[in-house]
Design a protein around this nucleic acid. Structure first.
Lengths: 269, 269
DNA sequence: CGCTCCCTTGAAGCTATTCAAGTTGAGTGG
DNA sequence: CCACTCAACTTGAATAGCTTCAAGGGAGCG
């Protein structure tokens, strides 16, 4: 019944069985996307939110010169465009990097869930915040870290997120990312990425194959680039938020809502 | 009664008089911050949201080596940390760059406003989205644009945002930013920023003074770097969102929810 | 008047890009 | 199963872009 999306949201907010069921229901209708295909394209009018249930995808912006900048990688359980519903058109595209299974949810449903289920509202809020935090981390690294540490840091981030949903093992990880994709992410040229990867390979931090990067020992890579996963909020450091909010807020919000708009049922006699 | 914060939120969502009053009330208590001082520091426990009502500030992350990366500039009317309430501690600092007037709002109040007032909820949502969009734009530029266009683009963004709240004129703009601050934003060295600015100066696109950059003709600068302000959502391109959402949402959502999950009140007899 | 912070200047050196070939590997059709 | 093809990876050399180091000048502030 529960899928990776539900599991991921549940990492940061305590969801009731009812919440979980509602989310699982909403993500029931899925579709398959082939590698390289767009799930959503820049300029589309947003109607459905997309949830990546299996595979590996990215959020990117096309550029005038034909290139692209990858803004984020999406791992199973991630929302692709959860918070775009109020926009007149999509500001970025989503592309599948491997074979993907994707659930579609009409934005109406998202809005309903957010409006009536405070825990889900909170969980969605978390997901925006973490998205923004990842962007910030990328930005900080881009300016300040050396290219090889930046690439290593990025790999650590993706691996950590994969581990959080149970898709990567503790020690070794294998990512299906091409060097061209990495170049589009880091804002470096393909050539330079190649040389950076060659260095990392020489230091035995990674192994490289066709569209594949293998990290034999993740903890060593983390030490190399000083990776601190705090900004992903995948652990229970923020537990006080978890305990403070869900039950308390849901009752309070309900009461507040009714105070303002009148009782729900009785308003339509 | 209405201040720049209210005005700014009102750019993207139609606020009722009641909404405006509530927001104006919430931002009544203000404080002054001297240039260079932190308004909020990394690691603080979030209790109050801060709104910049006058002056110029930035959001930044400190680095191990003593440097910093500036993640965003804040202009009058901007929220500094509106959406951080659920975090256990602040992931970044806010610093005043000039003399600033700042309003404090307890996060409880924000949550209440968001819960009771759908328009305010929407307006806050917009502000997160635009924050993220600005980060994305920075990231795209950092990788792909030449240093001088990147700096020019950044200047255009800040000026456009100042114009939106009526703090900058149509033609000329004067920004109180030091070259060191620009360097921390663009992830470039101070020297290089200097040379980039020297180039822009030579092309008569800007004038440079002490902690001051003057743009004599903004439209020329925009043309130079191909600035498209769409991502700031300051115009009425997205007007359909404005009219569709506020009132409609609450009624429609209510009905939809009940159609889907059954009546609420009667489920607990 | 002297201090400090900021902007200005020059030169040397490293980092990343560009251009121009090659090589390898996976998938395809004969 | 083998040749063919295309995409991805590999290599080297030349160049542009950015950084670092070092040092001098000018504006504002006490």
């Amino acid at each position: 019944m529960t899928n990776l999306f539900v599991r991921k949201l549940g990492l940061r907010v305590t969801l009731s069985e009812e919440d979980k069921k509602a989310l699982a229901d909403a993500t029931r209708s899925t579709m398959k996307i082939a590698p390289g295909q767009d799930v959503v394209s820049e300029g589309d009018r947003p109607e459905f939110a997309h949830i990546l249930l299996d595979g590996f995808a990215c959020r990117y912006r096309g550029l005038e010169d034909g290139g692209r900048t990858i803004l984020a990688y999406l791992v199973p359980g991630d929302g692709c465009d959860l918070h775009a519903s109020i926009l007149p058109r999509m500001p970025h595209s989503i592309a599948a990097l491997t074979h993907c299974v994707i659930a579609q949810i009409p934005y109406r449903t998202i809005k309903e869930l957010a409006a009536y289920k405070p825990n889900i509202y909170l969980a969605l809020w978390w997901s925006i915040i973490v998205d923004e935090a990842m962007l910030q981390e990328l930005l900080v690294g881009l300016g300040r870290r050396s290219a090889s540490k930046q690439v290593a840091h990025f790999l650590c981030e993706v691996i950590t997120r994969l581990q959080a949903v149970g898709v990567a093992s503790e020690n070794e990880a294998r990512l299906h990312i091409s060097q061209a994709e990495l170049a589009d992410t880091a804002g470096l040229s393909l050539m330079h990425i190649y040389r950076v990867l060659a260095d990392l390979k020489k230091s035995n931090l990674i192994k490289v194959g066709q569209k594949t990067i293998i990290v034999p020992d993740i903890s060593i890579l983390k030490r190399f680039c000083g990776f601190d996963p705090g900004y992903l909020y995948l652990t229970d450091d923020h537990a006080f938020t978890k305990s403070e909010s869900p039950a308390a807020l849901s009752e309070a919000t309900k009461a507040q809502y009714e105070a303002r708009f009148g009782p729900r049922m009785s308003s339509t006699p």
